[in-house]
Design a protein around this nucleic acid. Structure first.
Length: 636
RNA sequence: GCCCAGAUAGCUCAGUGGUAGAGCACUUCCUUGGUAAGGAAGAGGUCCCGGGUUCGAGUCCCGGUCUGGGCUCCA
C-alpha cells in the first residue's frame, strides 16, 4: 500500500497508508470529532468522510460549524426529500436537486400535484428517515451501464443528463433502498438531516427551457440545528412583513388595480416619496455634469425600426395608429436622446455630452412577470446617455461608478456586486466593434478599480454592460444600476460629431441608470427600511398631536410655522386620546411625533418623540425646525 | 407567455348546496384626554367576470380576468 502525506490545518504533516478515509483521520484526532464530521476537504476538493483519500494534499475536516458543511447538509437534504417524496408518491420521477442560496430545491415530475398541504407529511417522512441514521454510501459505475439501469427505472431526466456527460463512470449515492445519481459529497448518514423545512412549490421548466416539460419544484431549506432553522424562518416572516405591497397600502403610498395590470397609481404620500427621490437624483446628476431633457412618449414606428427595437421587441411594445401611420409608446429613451444629439452640428468640444431624463417608459411585459411595483409595465427610469469618444469611455465609466456608489451609500447600500455582461447571441454590430468596446469596458473597470464577475452572453443586443447589484438590510440582492457601451445605436440613428481633424466621427453612447426603475427602487426602499423611512425620505416627516381638541388651533399654528421652514408636517385632528394617536402615528412609521398640549401651547414648544429613540422632551418650534433640517441634510 | 394556487365588506380573513359573517377601519353621538387601542350606536356586499349543473350556487363544473409562488423574459 502506498503512503500518503497530508497537511493538517495547523501545518503539521501526517503520513497515512493508502485507503485511509477522512473518518479514520478524524477518529485519530478524537472520536467526538469523527462523530461531528460532515465531510473533508483535500486540496480544496470536498470528499465524503468515508471515501479513501485519493492523494496527498492539505487536509481539513468539515464539521457542523463550517459554512461549507451547510451546503453539504442541504444537498443531502435534497436527496432525503427526494426519497421521502418517492416513497410517499410512487411514480415520481426525479430531475435535479441543487443547493441554492439559503436552501435547496428538487425538480420532480409526478402524477401527484403538490401543494403546501403535502409539506407536513413530507417533512414527517424526512424526519423519520433522518432519525434512522441510515448510512449514505457512494458508488461508482460505468456510465453506459448507469444509463441502462436508470432507463429501466423510467428516470428519463437522469438518463438525459448522463447521456450528455463524457466521463467513463458516474457516481451515485444510496441510503437504504433509495439511490440517486450524484457527484457528492454527502453527509455520512441521514442523522445530520433533521432540521429541514419545506417552503414552497412552483412550476419550473426542465433545464429552464420553456419548450421543455414543466416540472414541479419543491423549495426547502435545512440547517445544522433547530435554532438556526427557526432563525431563518423568522427572517422569512420578517421579509413577509416588509412586503412593499402590504406596506404600500398601509402607508397609503400607491395602489394598483385589476383593469390596469402593471400600472401604478401613486397616492399623495407615495408621490411625495417619489418626488423626493426624483429631486435627489436630479440634484446628483446636475452636480455631475448631466443636462436634463424630456422626450416624447409616442414615437414613430420608423424610428424603432431604424434603432432595431422593432425587430427584437415588437411583441413587448404598445403600438398605436394614427392617419395610417404606426407609432409606439416608448419602451426606452435612447432613440429620443439621439434625436436631441442629432440637432445641429456637434463638435468634439461638446463631448462627453451627458443627457439625462426621468424617462417614462411603457413595456408590455408578459403578464406572468408582473410583481407589485417591482416589475411593472409603466415606469420611470433615472436614465441618461453619455455621448463620448472611445477614449472617454474609461473616465466616464469610472466617474459613473463613483456617483453610483455615492448615491447607493445615501440609502445605506454599501455592499455592491458588479457583473460584466458580454456579447449575446442575438446582437447587432460587427465582431470587430464588439471586440473593441468589450475591451474598452474591461479597461474602464480596471481604471475604476472595479472587481467584476463575468456574465458571458448576457449583454444588451447593442453592446456589453456592467450591472450593479445592491444588498438590502435583509441581505437580499437587487439589480438596479447599469452602464452599457453602445457603438451601434449612434451608427443606426446617424449620430455624428466633427472631430479635431475637421472630419465627421461616430460617437460612442453610454446608456446608464443608477436607481433603474424608480417604481422598483421605491419598492426596494419600502422593504429595505420596512416602511420606516429616514426623515429625508419620509413623506410625512412629523405629525403634530394635540393633547385634546382644545389645543387643535395651537397645533395648526405650529404646523404652519414648520411647513414654512420646509418640514413635511401634518396635524392629527382626530377626536381621540393621545395614546391612540401615538399608536397610529407609530404604526405609520412617522419619524417625529410632536405633542402639543397646555404647556406647549403656552410656551411655544413641542414635545418631540423620535421614532426609535422615544421622548426627547420639549423643544422650541424653531429648535425643532433646525434639528430636522440637520437630519434631512445629513440624509438621516 | 408557461405550471400550480387563490379571489367574500376599505383591510385581514371565516363561511362544504338552503335568508352573507367577525375583527380592524369608516360614520354619528358621548367623552376632552399627557406618550402605543376610552365607550355606545350605525352604515357598509354584483361573494372577480361570463356560462353551465341544480328546485336552489359564495359553495359544484367549464371558460376568462387579475393576484400570488415560481419558471422563462427583462432593450
Amino acid at each position: 500500500m502506498d503512503t500518503l502525506t497530508i497537511t493538517l490545518p495547523d501545518g503539521s504533516e501526517k503520513q497515512v497508508t493508502g485507503g485511509t478515509t477522512g473518518r479514520d483521520i478524524a477518529m485519530g484526532i478524537s472520536p467526538r470529532l469523527a462523530d461531528a464530521a460532515v465531510a473533508v476537504v483535500l486540496d480544496g476538493v470536498q470528499l465524503d468522510l468515508d471515501r479513501p483519500l485519493p492523494g496527498n494534499g492539505s487536509f481539513r475536516i468539515l464539521t457542523t460549524r463550517d459554512a461549507e458543511a451547510l451546503e453539504i447538509v442541504r444537498h443531502s437534504s435534497a436527496h432525503l426529500m427526494a426519497q421521502a417524496v418517492v416513497e410517499l408518491f410512487p411514480g415520481t420521477k426525479l430531475a435535479i436537486g441543487p443547493v441554492i442560496e439559503n436552501g435547496f430545491y428538487y425538480d420532480i415530475d409526478s402524477p401527484h400535484k403538490f401543494s403546501p398541504d403535502d409539506f407536513a407529511a413530507i417533512e414527517a417522512k424526512m424526519l423519520q428517515l433522518a432519525e434512522a441514521k441510515t448510512p449514505i454510501r457512494r458508488n461508482e459505475i460505468d456510465r453506459l451501464q448507469a444509463i441502462e439501469q436508470w432507463g429501466s427505472q423510467d428516470e428519463p431526466y437522469k438518463v438525459e443528463m448522463m447521456q450528455e456527460w463524457t466521463d467513463a463512470t458516474v457516481s451515485f449515492y444510496t441510503q437504504g433502498e433509495f439511490f440517486d445519481l450524484c457527484r457528492g459529497p454527502h453527509v455520512p448518514h441521514t442523522g445530520f438531516l433533521k432540521f429541514v423545512k419545506l417552503l414552497s412549490v412552483a412550476g419550473a421548466y426542465w433545464r429552464g427551457d420553456e419548450k421543455r416539460p414543466m416540472l414541479q419544484r419543491l423549495y426547502a431549506t435545512a440547517f445544522h440545528d433547530k435554532k438556526a432553522l427557526e432563525a431563518h424562518v423568522a427572517a422569512l416572516e420578517e421579509a413577509k412583513k416588509r412586503d412593499h405591497r402590504v406596506l404600500g397600502r398601509k402607508l397609503e403610498l400607491f395602489h394598483m388595480q385589476e383593469d390596469m395590470p402593471g400600472m401604478v397609481f401613486w397616492h399623495p404620500q407615495g408621490w411625495t416619496l417619489y418626488r423626493t427621490l426624483q429631486n435627489y437624483v436630479r440634484s446628483k446628476v446636475e452636480a455631475n455634469g448631466y443636462l436634463e431633457v424630456h422626450t416624447p412618449s409616442v414615437m414613430s414606428k420608423t424610428l424603432w425600426e431604424k434603432s432595431g427595437h422593432w425587430d427584437k421587441y415588437q411583441e413587448n411594445m404598445f403600438v398605436t395608429e394614427s392617419e395610417k401611420r404606426t407609432f409606439a409608446i416608448k419602451p426606452m429613451n435612447c432613440p429620443g436622446h439621439i434625436q436631441i444629439f442629432n440637432q445641429g452640428l456637434r463638435s468634439y468640444r461638446e463631448l462627453p455630452l451627458r443627457i439625462a431624463e426621468f424617462g417614462s417608459c411603457v413595456r408590455n411585459e408578459p403578464s406572468g412577470t408582473l410583481h407589485g411595483i417591482m416589475r411593472v409595465r409603466g415606469f420611470v427610469q433615472d436614465d441618461a446617455h453619455i455621448f463620448c469618444t472611445e477614449a472617454q469611455i474609461g473616465p466616464e465609466v469610472a466617474a459613473f461608478c463613483q456617483l453610483l456608489k455615492e448615491m447607493y451609500a445615501d440609502f445605506g447600500f454599501n455592499d455592491i456586486l458588479v457583473k460584466f455582461s458580454t456579447r449575446p447571441e442575438k446582437r447587432v454590430g460587427t465582431d470587430e466593434s464588439w471586440d473593441r468596446v468589450e475591451k474598452a469596458l474591461a479597461d474602464a473597470c480596471e481604471y475604476a478599480g472595479l472587481a467584476t464577475e463575468l456574465n458571458p452572453g448576457e449583454g444588451a443586443f447593442y453592446g456589453p454592460k456592467l450591472e450593479f447589484t445592491l444588498r438590502d438590510s435583509l441581505g437580499r440582492h437587487w439589480q438596479c444600476g447599469t452602464i452599457q457601451v453602445d457603438p451601434n445605436l449612434p451608427e443606426r440613428l446617424g449620430a455624428e460629431y466633427v472631430g479635431e481633424d475637421g472630419h465627421k466621427h461616430r460617437p460612442i453612447m453610454l446608456h446608464r441608470a443608477i436607481l433603474g426603475s424608480l417604481e422598483r427602487f421605491v419598492g426596494i426602499l419600502i422593504e429595505h427600511y420596512a416602511g420606516a423611512f429616514p426623515a429625508w425620505l419620509s413623506p410625512t416627516q412629523a405629525v403634530i398631536l394635540p393633547v385634546s381638541e382644545k389645543y387643535l388651533e395651537a397645533a395648526q399654528a405650529t404646523a404652519k410655522t414648520l411647513r414654512a421652514s420646509g418640514v413635511r408636517v401634518v396635524v392629527d385632528e382626530q377626536n381621540q386620546k393621545l395614546g391612540y394617536k401615538i399608536r397610529e402615528a407609530e404604526g405609520k412609521r412617522t419619524p417625529f411625533i410632536l405633542v402639543v398640549g397646555e404647556k406647549e401651547a403656552a410656551a411655544g414648544t413641542v414635545s418631540v418623540r423620535q421614532r426609535g429613540a422615544g421622548d426627547l422632551g420639549a423643544k422650541s418650534v424653531a429648535e425643532f425646525a433646525e434639528f430636522i433640517a440637520q437630519e434631512v441634510a445629513a440624509r438621516r
